[in-house]
Design a protein around this nucleic acid. Sequence first.
RNA 1: GCCGACGUGGCUCAGCUGGUAGAGCAGCGCAUUCGUAAUGCGCAGGUCAUCGGUUCGACUCCGAUCGUCGGCUCCA
Length: 645
Amino acid sequence: MASIVFPDNSSREIEQGTTGLDVALSISKGLAKKAVVFEFNNRLMDMNESIPGDGRMRIITSDDPESLEIVRHSCAHLMAAAVLELYPDTKFGVGPAIENGFYYDMDIPGFKGEKDLEAVRSRMKRLIKKNVKFQKKVISYDEALSLFSQRGERFKLELLDEIKDSGEEITVYTLGGFTDLCRGPHVPSTKFLSSFELLSVAGAYWRGSEHNEMLTRIYGAAFNTREELSTHLTFLEEARKRDHRKLGAELELYSSKGMGGAGFVYWLPKGTIVKENLENLWKDAHRRAGYQLVSTPHIAPVELWKTSGHYDYYRDNMYFTEVENGEYAIKPMNCPGHIIIYKNSKRSYKELPMRIAELGTVYRFERSGALHGLMRVRGFTVDDGHIFCTADQIVSEIQDVVRFALYFLKMFDFGYRIELSLMDPADPGHYAGDPADWARVEPLLAQALDDMGENYKTVTGEAAFYGPKIDIKLRDALGRYWQGPTVQFDFNIPGRFDLSYVGPDGDEHRVYMVHRALFGSVERFIGNLIEHFTGNFPGWLSPVQLVILPITSAQNEFAEKVYKEAVGAGLRCEFDTRSETIGYRIRSAETGKVPYMFVIGEREVESGAVAVRRHGEGDIGTLTLEDAVQTVVDACARPALPERR
RNA sequence: GCCGACGUGGCUCAGCUGGUAGAGCAGCGCAUUCGUAAUGCGCAGGUCAUCGGUUCGACUCCGAUCGUCGGCUCCA
């Protein structure tokens, strides 16, 4: 006999050998039907496992969000089982649950790619119909060794070795004809897995290292209900509709094709308006926030990059050019240029903190497969800033930068999440400088965030080569996260360039340096904006803010007066007198995502008014010319600048 | 870079098992003067990504290169 306690603190006595399912059944049939796994003394177990003794028990059903991970992981097994039926020579890697679904990495001889997915899908459905059970078995290392070597499962053998070293119990799960090395737990049977969809096929290196063999990865989505699955598939569809590459072409914002070179952005006139307005606000905001704006060249002698360390740590990503009197590098970062500006004269402690900033266009060689629309390019503009300060000023300067970054994110209603990126102590060769310095400085960044009351996640191994950093990920309207503002501490480069200031004591001291970017890359930030707003930019960024639409050419004269009025008020306005129906021209402005339209017919001419139409909403009523223009002017007003410092 | 898929006029796509290309939208012209998301007719536009190969003949088959897409790796 054993005694178990439920979450509501009720308890019951059970006989030895009683399984989780037995307990669930004794409570209610309904519960047993949807029980996925149970938690016993904080350990998740399969429903058909016997309860090992006294303890606390909680049954997790398909109504609990926690069950999703189990369902997804089990679905990976289900897919593997289906693949094995179709391709008996398949060798299996790993198949974990991921956000919204799962994947399995496999070497599948004979697999033809996406066109073969349908066959896998229908095999999976067949297994679901048969309601096949998951069977767990604890086996010895030798049994496992013989099982997997017999099948030539080279990847599993590798994993097995590691489990052996860890001393963990070795368990395998069998689903139909597929037995997998797996810690579990799993759903009782395949009927829990009916809400899945296979999404895509991709290559993935074994264990994530490009030195290893490349396996075939099949991605799938899985949920507890059809509804959740269909909501997710709709979400994916929505994301496709918002894709900045698609909208960027439709709205004529930029071009990056043809002989322009892969990974290079050509801003079209409309995109340039967006970019320029964003940059102008950025410049004004920076001046207000106490930054001095500077401008530095795109190319510099290679010696500069040797001194900065980029030549050693970043060369693979740099473009070089050679001329008669030596080798030059095209700048991949703006910091060395800003250092030259700092070093232009002897600096006093009275000048610190010295904040300089530049919209600096940089070029980095990116491997072809990494390129992606505006998000990942080879030439882009960093909204770069460098703060030179004393040790005492570091924390407050970092806090100011974080606040400044949030000013921009809030302006666009982006959510955010903060990450503190530290060095990987296991890989010191990847970083410049003395590990002891890193250890001294990393807590300062944490302190800056703690004092502000900001939550953050610490990630090791994500630091820049010259120092630890704070990354702010922005969350867009679809809940997706993107790389956003970054604040990077640097205690390396100042030493390399011998950067100093004269203190009140008359001695020279080493200056500290903070690198920071708020948009990150202007290109990518605009890509984010396009997707976040589905191309419906806030008025102040809209390439065209207003279209004047006379219903017939009889209204052209008055409409032109309206047009001149709007242009005079500073609006970016178009006058559409094309010989098309009013319906056609309205549609044209709507698909162009122009925020406002003034429709002018006979009635409006007579009363000297305009019918105002708002993008996406339709006719919002007739206003006097003056009020109408003012309405649009107000809607297109630039956001307020930050506090002057 | 790696794995897989794809690459036909500005855009979206047809083009069967090889016999030298079609549509809609956009553009241009003419007509139309219209009340809140597509008026009609006509015209023009493509060495079928590029370069090789197989073939009497290739958009269709093969190879390489370039580019794009989904991922991996990397990353602002």
